[in-house]
């Protein structure tokens, strides 16, 4: 596992191993806030940003816990440290880049409880990635998340005008669209090994 090349990790996490469509991480925002591309795309970018921070802090934390032989505290530490790191970043952005904060503002705290963020930390530990691999995994995961969110949002915008039977509307329709998208992404299997 640890010998995967960076390009391989990047391609896999964006396409065939997409965080949302293949690993089912971050389903809540995927089903909840994909009404329009205008909301989905910034949310995807904000999540990418948080995922990268989470991945970096998890990597450092795992190293520290490994030195102290406290692996059983991993989960508790991950979630507390990631939540605090996001909080710190939020405060920093709020003070120094107010426009960016206004753009991300509402989403940042919500993203902390997104399973994609914790998922990155857990999967990179489970797969024994080194520092560069973890970083690539996080970047790829974020791009894949943004891609899936934007795609589903644009499909939902198109379907809005279609004549859909009443029983299918709502969550059922979103799940079906997500299934078709996921089927399409399965076609990338094998790409990048």
């Amino acid at each position: 596992m640890a010998r995967e090349s960076l390009a391989q990790i990047l391609l896999t996490t964006i396409l065939s191993g997409n965080f949302v469509l293949a690993m089912f991480l971050g389903m809540c925002p995927f089903l909840g806030v994909t009404h329009s591309v205008a909301v989905a795309f910034p949310l995807g970018l904000a999540t990418t940003f948080v995922i990268i921070i989470a991945s970096l802090s998890a990597y450092l934390l795992n190293w520290v816990l490994g030195l102290a032989h406290l692996e059983f505290l991993r989960l508790i530490c991950y979630i507390v440290v990631i939540a605090s790191a996001v909080q710190l970043v939020e405060m920093y952005v709020k003070k120094h880049y107010p426009p960016l904060f206004r753009a991300l503002g509402i989403y940042l705290p919500l993203i902390t409880t997104n399973c994609a963020v914790l998922g990155v930390a857990l999967f990179q530990t489970a797969r024994d990635y080194d520092f560069m691999q973890s970083l690539t995994f996080a970047v790829g995961g974020g791009i894949g998340f943004t891609l899936a969110l934007t795609l589903l949002a644009s499909v939902r915008e198109r379907v809005e005008l279609a004549d859909v039977p009443e029983a299918v509307q709502g969550t059922v329709l979103v799940l079906m669209l997500a299934g078709v998208l996921s089927l399409a992404f399965m076609g990338f299997a094998g790409l990048g090994g």
């Binding site: 089912f24 029983a167 299918v168 969550t171 059922v172 799940l175 079906m176 997500a178 299934g179 996921s182």
Partner: peptide, 14 residues
């Protein structure tokens, strides 16, 4: 495979 999860869930909800 992953798409099946979406489809079965959608089927039950439907």
């Amino acid at each position: 495979l992953p798409p099946g999860g979406f489809f079965v869930m959608a089927g039950w909800l439907l």
